[in-house]
């Protein structure tokens, strides 16, 4: 690797990682004033354990993220399958647009439009009775499914259709072909899609803030109200736990991926 390229990469990666490293270091700072170092301590991790509001919000977020990811994978896969395998049906152009649009839609607009929908349906048919977990989950599914569709689409396009045709020729009905041939082949994309949808949901502040109601605060909503007030050593500890979990997850996924001989 030549020197110039090496320099560009090192500076770029340092830019990406230094803030994260700084948060991890500060999370072990004994001082309540975040930027003044006063010796090593794990007191903020203890404080985190006793912060009921944060813990409740974290479990709520994990639940929403898991439900969202599961439904988004089903809908996103159906959408991707439609786009790749059905080149012709009425309303396809509109469908293509609707699958792609959430990818580039500013969050504030998605959030506002869904809230206005929920307000309208509430006065029309009385649903949803109150806004909270259900409305946040629906909102998250709507944008997550677009991301899942992109990931699954890429996998569907690159796979050998003659495998499906062979199964068909041997007399398998379409649903069997799908579950025995197509599904196992696109499985890695479904896993990545699920993880992506899970992360997007866990990370979303803006859309959840719009469509949530009283009593349903997700983790980003609680964190946001804390950091808006100022620096908080507890957030540093939370960030460190987050970074640790993500790093473990990614390293684990890479090691697992290495072990399996195919793909």
């Amino acid at each position: 690797m030549n020197v110039r390229r090496f320099t560009a990469l090192s500076f770029g990666l340092a830019f990406l990682y230094l803030p994260i490293v700084a948060l991890v270091v500060y999370s072990f700072n004994a001082s309540p004033r975040v930027t003044v170092w006063q010796g090593f301590s794990t007191r903020w991790y203890e404080a985190l354990l006793h912060n009921e509001e944060l813990i409740t919000a974290a479990f709520l977020s994990l639940r929403i993220a898991a439900i969202n990811a599961t439904i988004a994978v089903v809908l996103g896969t159906l959408a991707a399958y439609t786009l790749v395998r059905y080149p012709r049906f009425r309303g396809r152009t509109l469908f293509t647009g609707m699958v792609a649009a959430p990818l580039v839609m500013p969050e504030v607009i998605t959030g506002l439009s869904l809230l206005l929908l929920f307000v309208a349906t509430q006065s029309l048919i009385g649903w949803p009775e109150s806004r909270g977990v259900a409305t946040i989950t629906i909102a998250h599914i709507t944008f997550s499914l677009a991301f899942v569709a992109v990931v699954v689409q890429a996998r569907l396009v690159s796979f050998d259709e003659s495998l499906e045709e062979a199964a068909q020729d041997l007399g398998a009905p379409p649903w069997r072909v799908f579950f025995l041939v197509t599904l196992p082949i696109i499985a890695p994309a479904l896993v990545s899609g699920w993880l992506l949808a899970f992360t997007l949901s866990l990370d979303d502040l803006v859309i959840a803030s719009f469509v949530s109601g009283p009593g349903a605060s997700t983790l980003p909503m609680v964190v946001f109200s804390m950091v808006r007030r100022g620096l908080s050593p507890e957030i540093n500890a939370l960030a460190t736990l987050f970074i640790g979990a993500v790093t473990l997850g990614i390293v684990g996924a890479v090691l697992l991926g290495r072990r399996s001989p195919r793909s």
Binding site: A22, L23, Y26, L231, V246, G249
Partner: peptide
């Protein structure tokens, strides 16, 4: 990798 960690936390890191 940084993309998988929370967006909010990465913005907060700069505030620190």
């Amino acid at each position: 990798l940084p993309f998988w960690t929370s967006f909010l936390i990465r913005v907060y890191a700069w505030k620190v």
